[in-house]
Amino acid sequence: MSSTSTKLRRAWIYHPNLYFDTSIVFASSDRHKRVPSTETFIDTVNFILRMHSGLGVNKLAVIRPLRQPGKKDIDGWVSFAVTSKARVVILNFSPYHGSHDRRYNFPCHLFNGKSGSHLQVLQLDTITLGPSPPGFCGFANLTVLTLENVLVLGDLQLLLKCPALEWLTIRMCSQLHNLYAPEPLPRLAFLCVQDCAIDKIDVQAPNLTTFKYRGRFKVIIALRECLKLKTASIASPIEDNLYYIFTELPNGLPHVERLHVNVFVKTQIPGFTQAPHKFINLRHLTMRITYEIAKRFGRNAVLQLAYFLEAAPFLVDLHLDSLKRACITGFNGNGGQVALVKFILRNAVKLEEMVIDPKGRITNQMMGEHKGRRMIKEKLVPKDKNGLLVIL
């Protein structure tokens, strides 16, 4: 280990935060050299940990692409974290694009008995996490768990052995299909699930206050029992299914007061319908909507926002991000349409033009044209302070 200076060796003996990536292998004057090989990196980490006193360790972080052939060495690093009572463990072995069977398997068995009680933060990236081994007591004081690109084998029952968990983030775990906690997670306050092929999210978390989700809209979100859940963010920027937001979410997130939505819309719909469920507690709504570029789509896609006015009867604040032009055809002046136009005029800060066409094309729409024009004159024109309305 001649490349490691004497000064560096001494510095590591009592250092509380052990952070290993390719930059620490060489002294600062040598960083122009090529990235060290995996073998060199592993040898250096092993040497430093052997030299360390094992006292006062707060964090152990290893960030470099590694895989199963280095299991013995990595197990040794985790064992060091256990024996030194490290509070934070970060293993980030990304990027790795090989087969799952060559990924490193996280050794829960090393945290047996009381040895896992010191761990408070665990972050895993590009690792396999199997079912809890027999006799595993869990992480009694773990407050933050982050799983990114982790191959989860099973239904993540590890959560039931983390009674102090407050912050849970799961990203790009493609094999995790159900996030289910049949027993309460009493201290969980923040839950984030993004870019997973997940079918159902069903957890009992009496103190959950914030929920973030990004992914496909086929997921069943069952958080009705989370009475303190007041803020939620829902995003599916490539999937056309705004209908899911106002038909499924109110039932799964009935207590939310502040909702952020990011969706892609291309489907043109003919009119309005009664929302099957209500956001009875929703007060603040922020929407970022990306519309289909093709002209045959999206001409009246903004009408879908009217469903929100039906589904959120007590909404007091709506912010529409990036909406520059809106067009409503077949306007007949009903309450939902009038309310929608008012909301758009008041909240779409980038709006340049709002086109309203009350002309009907079928009999019942033609009968409503007179009422539509009257309602435009009485209810909408006085609200158009910036001259954005164009009436056809």
Results as ranks from 00 to 15, higher is better:
Leu119Tyr: 08
Ser37His: 06
Lys33Ser: 10
Gln268Tyr: 00
Asn364Glu: 13
Tyr243Ala: 06
Phe80Gln: 07
Leu323Trp: 14
Leu49Ser: 05
Ile13Met: 09
Lys228Cys: 12
Arg31His: 15
Leu191Trp: 01
Ala326Gly: 14
Gly333Pro: 02
Asp317Met: 09
Thr363Gln: 14
Leu185Cys: 03
Gly298Val: 09
Gly360Thr: 07
Leu388Tyr: 08
Phe246Ala: 13
Lys59Val: 07
Phe80Asp: 03
Lys72Arg: 15
Ser23Gly: 05
Leu49Ala: 12
Gln337Asp: 02
Phe93His: 07
Asp357Thr: 02
Ala301Leu: 09
Pro16Glu: 01
Thr38Asp: 08
Asn46Ile: 10
Lys114Gln: 08
Val341His: 11
Met354Glu: 02
Gln120Gly: 09
Val203Trp: 01
Ala235Tyr: 01
Phe106Trp: 14
Thr231Met: 05
Lys161Phe: 04
Asn281Gly: 03
Ile356Tyr: 00
Lys85His: 04
Gly372Ile: 01
Met287Gly: 12
Trp167Val: 10
Leu60Tyr: 06
Leu249Lys: 00
Leu253Gly: 11
Leu160Val: 10
Thr128Cys: 11
Asn281Asp: 03
Leu320Pro: 03
Thr210Gln: 14
Pro131Cys: 01
Gln194Val: 08
His284Phe: 14
Ile13Gln: 06
Asp321Pro: 05
Met354Tyr: 13
Met367Leu: 12
Arg325Gly: 04
Asn17Thr: 08
Lys59Gln: 10
Val82Gly: 00
Leu305Met: 15
Gly387Cys: 10
Ile127Asp: 02
Leu156Pro: 00
Asn262Ile: 06
Cys192Met: 13
Gly98Lys: 10
Ser79Gly: 12
Arg288Trp: 02
Gln204Gly: 02
His277Ser: 13
His177Ser: 07
Asn241Pro: 10
Gln68Phe: 11
Arg361Thr: 08
His15Leu: 13
Lys371Leu: 13
Ser132Gln: 10
Lys33Phe: 15
Ala11Gln: 09
Glu352Ile: 11
Ile198Ala: 00
Glu310Asp: 08
Gly372Asp: 00
Arg361Met: 07
His100Arg: 09
Lys218Asn: 11
Gly98Val: 15
Ser84Thr: 04
His109Cys: 12
Thr329Ile: 09
Asn386Glu: 04
Ile24Met: 14
Lys295Asp: 10
Leu389Ser: 00
Ala339Glu: 13
Pro36Thr: 09
His118Trp: 01
Leu242Asn: 00
Cys137Arg: 12
Thr273Leu: 02
Gln123Pro: 02
Arg373Gln: 13
Leu345Cys: 06
Arg87Glu: 11
Leu285Gln: 06
Ile42Arg: 02
Tyr19Thr: 09
